[in-house]
Amino acid sequence: MSKLRVNAFTLSLDGYGAGPDQTLQHPLGVGGESLHKWLVTTRTFHQMVIGKDGGATGVDDDFAIRSFENVGAYILGRNMFGPIRGEWPDDKWKGWWGDNPPYHVPTFVLTRYKRAPIMMEGGTTFYFVTDGIHSALEQAKAVAGGKDVRIGGGVSTLRQYLQERLIDEMHLAISPVLLGSGENLFAGLDMVKLGYRCTEQVATANALHVTIGRA
């Protein structure tokens, strides 16, 4: 049965998934890049995201590998797709990732503003969903071919799906970094009342990997 998953989503020790003031120069917010040391050093990141050889194997890489397994579609928040706010000024912006994004499956972007789908290299097509999180999930499952749907971020999108108890499984990597401000994943959310519990925890030098599932 198809699941709605979160994988390889990194938080700071104080619960922030991105720093403040996201811009073209700071796509993860100020200080946000410091969260992802555990991921960017892995062989999977080198191969799947930047298309190069090298990178480390081990537990961090094992979690990175798992994040790409059995994924038939993605859901992204608009901030995850890019820094543009309001109406789309034109069709030039096609994401942070160049001509060949790392998704390689249909990817649904939550937004309030209509835009035609964008076909990219490698099998990624971005679809822009203007009628909410439930519609995006329905569309993603319809094209996933029985595979799972993965939420790629960001924090606001995860929070919306958590509040509706729609996420089946969530892998978080807790990085030993303090951000102080930004986008906090759990602020105001009672995860116990929402029906979630910790099902797995593994520590490495660069992160504490935690898996959260339904109770």
Rank of each mutant, 00 (worst) to 15 (best):
I50L: 06
G86F: 07
T42K: 01
H26I: 05
S34R: 14
R115P: 08
H46N: 14
D131L: 13
L172Q: 04
R66I: 07
L76N: 05
G213D: 01
P89M: 13
S34T: 09
E183I: 06
R214V: 13
S135A: 15
Y113G: 06
D61K: 00
Y161F: 15
F81N: 04
N184R: 14
D131P: 07
Q25F: 12
I151M: 14
P117W: 10
A173H: 15
G95T: 00
F126R: 00
P20H: 05
D131T: 15
G31F: 07
T130R: 01
S156G: 10
G95P: 05
Q163F: 03
E69F: 11
F108N: 01
G195C: 11
V6H: 11
G72H: 07
R85P: 02
E69P: 09
V30H: 08
L28E: 04
F186R: 03
M1P: 12
G152A: 12
R214Q: 11
G153S: 11
I212T: 03
R214H: 10
T125P: 06
R85V: 13
K147Y: 04
L39N: 00
L110R: 01
K114I: 05
H171L: 07
V49F: 09
G182W: 04
R159G: 02
S12H: 00
K52P: 05
E169Q: 10
Q163M: 08
V143M: 08
K52V: 13
R66F: 02
Y103H: 02
V71N: 01
M119C: 07
L194P: 06
P106R: 09
P106H: 09
F126Y: 15
R112T: 09
L172E: 04
S34P: 01
Y113N: 15
L158N: 03
H209A: 02
T204M: 07
N206I: 02
H134F: 13
T42W: 04
M191P: 02
G95E: 09
V210F: 07
V59T: 15
Q139I: 04
V109M: 10
K92G: 02
E164L: 06
N7C: 09
M1Q: 08
P106K: 01
L185I: 09
R165T: 11
M119Q: 15
M1S: 15
V143E: 00
G153W: 13
A173Q: 11
I75L: 14
I75E: 01
L11E: 00
A64S: 07
Y74G: 04
T204S: 10
H134W: 03
K94L: 02
D91T: 12
R150G: 01
W93P: 04
E200L: 10
D168C: 05
R150H: 12
M80Y: 07
L166K: 10
T157M: 05
G19C: 03
T204E: 05
H134C: 12
R214G: 12
G154Y: 06
R85C: 03
T199P: 03
R112P: 12
A56W: 07
H36E: 04
V40F: 12
L172M: 03
F63H: 14
